[in-house]
Design a protein around this nucleic acid. Structure first.
Length: 936
DNA sequence: CCTGTCACG
DNA sequence: GACGTACGTGACAGGG
């Protein structure tokens, strides 16, 4: 039948179906091989329900499921930030995508997608064609972007709510008729698709304006007539942006299609195609139900093994054999390795662990690789072990041990598997192994990481190292590496470990990793932290790996000159100190210093700590320094000593001889709040507060022809506090771009902003920070060096002025006591078991519980920005190098600074979207320079 | 190995 | 009434 009058076309938004199915269901896997299958299952159920419901006069004559193909469309060419806020597709959803297409065809429904176009454009084109041919159209979707198509026989159907959306429905949503929807969308913008629109104008205002002026073009041409000054200004200044937004939201009715409406005619499903497909997916219930409906016999689906006493979705790990290091295989040739590769492909996943000559991923060599496909089934592939014995003479024996595959041959065989989309690689701290393998030309993907899974589940409860996890979840103590390598001076490297011994240790690690994955992975869904793991943890790991491998250039000469200068100054100070003390002693020894100050010189304020030594911290020395020379000199000496030992000397040791750069390691699970830690070296505590310290940053440089950029969030934690505690006065101040500490001071003390003194502002600033930390009178008093009663007075006044803060604190502590955890806005859990403690520890836990959601939400936001950053700057000559909690540092080709700042700022300021709609704007400040001191 | 000290956000 | 307290980290030196 040729499409025409009397025909009824159904267009199903396939991507919407898939995502609904994916998020509605737990992460089911195919029993026989562990293939993730939840979304396909839900998708098939939805299709089936849809087909079942197609009876009566409204039944379609033509139908198609329309999918998106690829992520780059013509809209990205118009605007490179289009949909830049999109969360990456979950890794376990990706392999299911082709299966949903197969499923559609198995149901004998037309399945269409076109490279470079969104599904919405194909839907628009088909709708126009069908309407022009005189037929009816129903779009099965609730996406507001499709509402512009409604009218003239085109309607939408929200399949979940079973709600038809017609012209009235669109008017209710947008306040205008469907033909003007794009004008409203162009003005209002869309944070989900990252369409900019006109800032400050939402759907309500947009509809008002469009209805008044008739069209967007008319409105923009006559913008001068608008009474509200801010609105007028926006429309005039942002005209280009608004016109671009209209292009972005306008669907293309002329998409080149490789098919016609007639190709979409409704067909009966073929039982011989549909049922085998469902059986192959191992959907037992659905196969049976559909077979009954079609009146044919259901093909057999293998029965899942039933483990006693547990439900189907429970994380019952099949009875695993005990861990037995003697059972592991040593793979010594290509034939044996091929057997393992075949097995991995069959199973679809593999635990991988690499053994190396040390811990610095940028310098060590690969020694061997371990693989595990099932609990107890693991092997070790030794590659570069050295022959035993000292027989090589003076330089040791550097010959390779017998019985190992050539390194290149093994890597060539493993590369396709390690990079295969269809094979999930499982690691414990996969970032380490991924970096090693990357240096050998292998890009490991996709992957799961048991360390990150544990962190998403249990941050605050315990550590996430393999030894901890193994003891806790497998009740097994792994072989300590010390048993192989020894310790101290006589320690050897892994390539000197005999292969049989190495096999037991190394393969055990892979075995443990796989078992941990089996135990921990299913818990993500039950603990409702799947999204945290998939959007904040797993995708960050490769981003960090790239930053670490790239490193930052550090100038050795600058550091070395500073070291010398510090040495001289310290020697001078030391002499003065000894002179003042009347004797020579070790200035760097707090114990000796305490005895000089408080015993010999009898200065006041000598307090002994629990070890019996006098406390000589900076705060105490500062008090003494107003009256005495010696403590003042010691403070200067200490500052220099710190700078020299921790920075100017130690940093030089960290310059990689091959790259000439410093490669830090970020510990993703380092802080319980979601922050990261930086180690070897720690590049998150390079001095900045003191003038002398800040000069260390001059040694962090951009290479010739490049520039360093630093972008940092302005007051992000206070903004989050304003949002979560709902403090209108603070929100207002942020919206108006006020100096927040001055605004706080003004609100608290009633001082007008133009009469603000720096002293009053300083006090308000201390209070603002105090609030974030879970304020106490004592702490504030100490920080401000004022009497405790006065500090308490400030706090009381603060709570009086901002009662929402107290409510937030009370609610947060109550939540923590009830649940033993707190949460960030993005769903990250931070466990606070100590909240139940008695005594002083309860105070600690309470303040930590108040602080964690704020610090953690800020950490989540910058993580989201970092995850999206590589794509956003992919086409620019820029690299992201460092993260310092609220700051990102980039290395950029000179000349491209503006473009990079623009792109990176957009990502950072929009990083909360679309998951969380903040009541306060996020603001990012940017700096640039030849070195980090200038850029910051 | 632990403690004190001090660098950062 | 006393106890102790701002939150989160990592590196280094001294000292047992």
């Amino acid at each position: 039948m040729s499409f025409g009058k009397g025909c009824h076309l159904h267009l199903i938004d396939g991507s919407a179906f898939i995502f609904r199915a994916y998020h509605a269901l737990p992460p089911l896997t195919r029993k026989s091989d562990g293939l993730p299958i939840g979304a396909v299952s839900g998708f098939c159920n939805m299709l089936h329900r849809y087909v079942e419901g197609n009876t009566g006069p409204d039944a379609p004559t033509h139908v198609a499921v329309i999918f998106d193909k690829g992520s780059h469309t013509f809209r990205n060419d118009l605007y490179d930030l289009y949909k830049a806020n999109r969360e990456a597709m979950p890794e376990d959803l990706r392999p299911q995508m082709p299966l949903t297409r197969e499923a559609t065809r198995a149901f004998n429904i037309a399945c269409e997608e076109i490279e470079g176009y969104e599904a919405d454009d194909i839907i628009a084109t088909l709708s126009c064609q069908a309407r022009d041919a005189g037929g009816r159209v129903t779009i099965i979707s609730s996406d507001k972007d499709l509402m512009q198509l409604v009218g003239d026989g085109v309607e939408m159907l929200d399949a979940m709510k079973n709600l038809r959306i017609d012209v009235e429905g669109v008017e209710a949503k947008f306040g205008v008729t469907p033909d003007k929807v794009i004008d409203v969308q162009a003005l209002a913008g869309d944070s989900v698709d990252n369409v900019p629109g006109a800032p400050g104008i939402g759907i309500k205002t947009a509809a008002l304006l469009i209805n008044e002026y008739g069209s967007l073009e008319e409105l923009l041409d006559r913008a001068e007539e608008i009474k509200q000054p801010k609105r007028r200004q926006t429309l005039i200044e942002k005209r280009e942006q608004i016109e671009l937004s209209k292009k972005l939201v306008t669907l293309d009715c002329n998409t080149p299609l490789g098919f016609t409406l007639d190709d979409l005619e409704v067909k009966e499903p073929d039982p011989d195609v549909l049922l085998p497909f469902l059986a192959q997916m191992e959907f037992r219930t659905l196969t049976k139900r559909i077979a009954e409906g079609l009146g044919v016999e259901a093909p057999s689906v293998p029965e899942p093994e039933v483990s006693a006493g547990t439900g189907a979705i429970e994380d019952s790990v099949p009875d695993a054999p005990a861990i037995n290091p003697e059972a592991y295989e040593t793979v010594r040739d290509a034939e044996a390795l091929q057997n393992w590769i075949d097995r991995i492909r069959e199973v679809g996943h593999v635990a991988v662990d690499t053994e190396t000559t040390g811990l610095d991923e940028m310098r060590v060599d690969l020694v061997g690789i371990c693989l595990c496909v099932d609990a107890g089934t693991a092997c070790y592939v030794p590659l570069t072990h050295k022959a035993e014995g000292e027989s090589g003479g003076l330089f040791g024996n550097d010959e390779l041990a017998e019985g190992q595959m050539p390194l290149n041959q093994a890597l060539d065989m493993l590369k396709p598997v390690l990079e295969d989309d269809a094979v999930l690689k499982i690691g414990q701290n996969m970032k380490y192994d991924a970096k090693i393998l990357k240096r050998y030309g292998i890009n490991v993907a996709p992957f799961d990481d048991t360390m990150l899974i544990s962190y998403a589940l249990n941050a605050g409860l315990h550590g996430h190292g393999m030894d901890t996890l193994s003891e806790r979840y497998l009740d097994h103590v792994p072989i300590p590496i010390k048993e192989l390598l020894g310790s101290g001076k006589s320690m050897i490297t892994f390539d000197r470990v005999p292969i049989d011994k190495a096999t037991r240790y190394a393969a055990e690690d892979a075995d443990i990793t796989l078992r941990l994955w089996q135990v921990l992975k299913p818990r993500l869904h039950r603990e409702k932290v799947t999204t945290v793991y998939e959007t904040l943890e797993r995708p960050l790991s490769p981003v960090l790996a790239e930053m670490e491998m790239h490193g930052v250039q550090v100038d050795r000469d600058t550091l070395s000159r500073m070291s010398n200068a510090f040495s001289q100054k310290m020697a001078q100070l030391e002499a003065e100190i000894h002179e003042l003390a009347g004797e020579s002693f070790n200035v760097g020894s707090p114990k000796q210093l305490g005895e000089i100050l408080f015993d010999k010189m009898s200065l006041p304020g000598g307090k002994k700590g629990k070890t019996g030594a006098y406390a000589t911290g900076a705060d105490i020395l500062e008090d003494l320094a107003t009256e005495h020379e010696l403590p003042a000199r010691v403070l200067d000496w200490r500052q220099l000593s710190k700078l020299k030992s921790t920075y100017t000397d130690a940093l030089q040791e960290h310059i990689n001889p091959e790259t000439g750069r410093v490669h830090t390691s970020y510990v993703q699970t380092g802080a319980n709040t979601g922050r990261m830690a930086s180690t070897d070296p720690n590049l998150q505590n390079i001095p900045v507060r003191s003038e002398e310290g800040r000069r260390i940053r001059e040694a962090f440089v951009a290479p010739e022809g490049k520039v360093l950029l630093s972008l940092d969030y302005s007051q992000i934690e206070l903004r989050i506090l304003a949002h979560v505690a709902g403090i209108d006065a603070l929100k207002q101040a942020f919206h108006e771009g006020q100096d927040i500490h001055a605004a706080t001071a003004s609100e608290m003390f009633g001082v007008p902003l133009d009469e603000m003194t720096s002293e009053v502002r300083r006090q308000a600033k201390a209070i603002n920070f105090g609030v974030i930390y879970g304020i106490s009178g004592f702490g504030l008093a100490r920080n401000l060096r004022i009497p405790r009663a006065e500090a308490q007075g400030f706090i009381d006044r603060y709570f009086e002025r901002f009662p929402g803060i107290r409510e937030y604190m009370d609610e947060t502590t109550a939540f923590a006591k009830e649940n033993l955890y707190v949460q960030t806005l993005f769903g990250r859990k931070i466990h606070t078991p100590e909240i139940a403690a008695k005594g002083p520890r309860a105070g600690f836990a309470k303040r930590a519980a108040i602080n964690a959601p704020i610090q953690g939400t800020a950490a989540d936001i910058i993580r989201r920005a970092m995850i999206r950053m590589p794509e956003a700057i992919a086409k620019l000559p820029a690299k992201m190098l460092l993260q310092v909690h609220d700051e990102l540092v980039f290395e950029v080709e000179a000349g491209a600074e503006e473009d990079v700042i623009k792109a990176a700022r957009a990502i950072m300021e929009g990083a909360a979207d679309p998951a969380v709609k903040l009541d306060v704007p996020l603001v990012v400040d940017a700096g640039r320079g030849a070195n980090w001191a200038e850029a910051h």
